[in-house]
Design a protein around this nucleic acid. Structure first.
Lengths: 234, 234
DNA sequence: CGCATTTTTGATATAGGTCAAGAGGCGTGG
DNA sequence: CCACGCCTCTTGACCTATATCAAAAATGCG
């Protein structure tokens, strides 16, 4: 039931990067006004609905994306056809870094929550990264984050019992201030933790029963952080 | 039984980078003679024995390393004290990229096979990466490799049954030309695949029994590649 | 040669997978 | 606006893969 929207529909308004609200954490935070003027294609922004596909693995691409607001899953397919979610991308994350090195995207990027994105031409990023030391440094930091996120995914979400993995996931996707979180579909949870939907469902039921999480409104939970940490270290 | 050797013992001979045998695939492949002359500290090389520790997680570091020949495991520790091998580094890989962004190493790097390394001062790499486009591009490619390696580790070695994971590991560590491989300790295999040493041992015994691998000499096997691929996709 | 460590093998327990059925939401069309 | 059908989620019963516990081989080291 994938709602796929066309590029033409999607990419409309030009972005106003100099006054962007996430500018400090965005990819272009270090650019000068001169840099912006040297960008030939306009930076465009878009909003995409849940279920939409930003790009597929193997697609030839010419754009990097900054996720301004929303949630996207990066999926990698296995030789036997099954799939695994290798990362979740959220606010201020950058998608498509691989285009700096290779012409194709390496994952399927699927929108999970309504997402606002800005897109930048790879060619401009590459060119500016040579002349602008701040962008150069920022790109390294983005790569670094991708690697440490991947390592965390492996060690905290793919090791240990289903309960420990689930606890790790909840702590990772929750809002750090409010201790609240919205859950993904059981199928996505399974594909992240490498467990079945049934085990995912049972584990969540168990957490609700033992008070580790409480459903405030539909699919909206408040978490017992200390309790979840105890599950992980226990 | 970790044999730890001191830095003073270890880092002896200065490297002759311009005539290095792995130069084409090494980090400095794109440097000019002028670049080399601008490096203030000499590039040094060393050989380290199995069991030695190159660096620990959290150590403050000033050097990147190119692995000329050998095998190193990168280990990450979990909150509950257990550990997980997150990557194996072999010929021509670069260790310590994280120092380009943060002052501390993020993994424990442990020598598995006698390893020859060259070390480069981070400060020089950072400086040269701004002026030399080839190094800049090479660094991106290194980061990219780290990310894709991590994704592969997750999807191919941490998903599915013990047999599939083991088959994936064997195919990954074997010599692609000769179809041969040397096995790691059962404990390391367990820490890579997130299975117990007993399951690792049993799976290997099973593979030997069914002819998927044959021991030619002690701990030296020849693999049935097609058979192993069949295990993965089956 | 003998002790320590690693590997293998066996017996048993259990977490999680599988299969199947029912329950709760949600959109669509009458 | 309700009813039907389609999903997704939940729960139950059962089974298998892997963990766990234990002991015996094999290997390596002093």
């Amino acid at each position: 039931m994938t709602k796929r929207i066309t590029i033409a529909q999607a990419w409309s308004g030009d972005a106003d990067c100099l006054n962007c609200s996430v500018r400090k954490s965005a990819l272009f935070s270090g650019l000068t006004e001169d840099d912006f003027e040297s960008i030939h294609q306009p930076v465009e922004q878009v909003t995409m609905p849940p279920g939409a596909v930003l790009y597929k693995a193997g697609d030839t691409g010419k754009y990097l994306y900054t996720l301004r607001h929303g949630l996207i899953k990066l999926v990698r397919y296995l030789p036997d056809g099954s799939q695994r979610i290798v990362r979740l991308m959220c606010d201020a994350d950058v998608l498509g870094l691989e285009l700096l090195v290779t012409p194709q995207y390496e994952h399927e990027a699927l929108i999970l929550k309504t997402t606002k994105l800005c897109r930048y031409p790879v060619s401009d990023i590459l060119r500016l990264s040579h002349t602008n030391p701040v962008l150069h440094k920022d790109l390294m930091a983005r790569w670094h984050k991708a690697v440490t996120d991947a390592d965390t995914w492996l060690t905290e979400l793919s090791t240990g019992s289903a309960k420990k993995r689930m606890a790790g996931l909840l702590l990772q996707i929750m809002d750090k201030d409010s201790r609240e979180c919205f859950l993904l579909s059981r199928e996505d949870i399974g594909s992240i933790l490498s467990i079945t939907v049934e085990t995912a469902s049972r584990t969540i039921s168990d957490f609700k029963r033992t008070g580790l999480m409480k459903e405030i409104t539909y699919n909206h939970y408040i978490l017992d952080i200390e309790g979840l940490k105890a599950v992980i270290s226990g």
